[in-house]
Amino acid sequence: MSAVKKRHPTFVVGKYAALAFYLIFALFPLYWLLKIAITPDALIYSEGTRLFPSEVTLLNFTTVVFQTDFLAYFRNSLVVSLGAAFFTTLFAAGAGYAFSRFVFKGKRIIIALMLVTQMFPLLMIIAPIYKIVAELGLLNSLTSLIVVYTAFNIPFATFLMQSFFDGIPKDLEDAAMMDGCSRFQALRKVVFPLTLPGLGATLGFVFTAAWSELLFALMLISKNDAMTFPVGLLTFVSKFSVDWGQMMAAGVLALIPSCLFFIFIQRYLVQGLTSGAVKG
């Protein structure tokens, strides 16, 4: 490990060039989003593909925030995404712990069933879901979306949480129980603090998935006051025109919570917290 191999300069340049190319490729759409959001309406078509507009405005943002229902969509999305993330993580953590630590009848069957649910396209079950939600009288409610998103995300989130629990040595729990903990205390005082990265990852994953989900939101919500943000974005498309500037401004604003959320959880995502627990 001591000697670091010296790379040929061309290799280094090539590596950075490849990285730069990838970054540009990945971030360009985001740049374009921002660029159109700050371009005055009049210049959108006339300046076309110019990399930076000759004039900059924040009018699109103020219009979106103060003159549309954007804030309502935003609040609805926040409620739905946080709700789905919270409940999914709660159930997935419980199920993941059970799968990781206990041997019980039907475990393999349950795991297989959960895998199967991930295999067929969602489009197939939209009609039955609509029917169920309608029968329950939950159409046009945010509750329906929270329930549906939670149900759809639990299998994957459970596998995710299970792998995090698998990574926590069982000896730690045994040691805690020898030290005087009940199983639940061991879970709360030892396992839970070590699972924070896993909980953070699961929360983040479900939050972003729910934040950008369109299909079910479109099917189950038709009233304006219960619309989530992705559905609301479509209202910027009218029969004869598309309000590009406002739509992009709304898009930029919608990115903010996702980014904030990831900044908030990223310190929990840092791995290596468990190193030193057992032989290192």
């Binding site: 040595p169 129980m177 020898m178 917290l273 627990a277 057992v278």
Partner: peptide
């Protein structure tokens, strides 16, 4: 009888130290 009520201490092969607690808290955890 549950492990916690047997009044027996155990040293594990993997040491099983709690990674999020410092040495003092690890030792005083019981």
């Amino acid at each position: 009888v549950r492990p916690r009520d047997r009044d027996i201490a155990m040293v594990f092969q993997s040491y099983a130290l709690y990674p999020h607690m410092d040495v003092a808290r690890n030792m005083g955890f019981s």
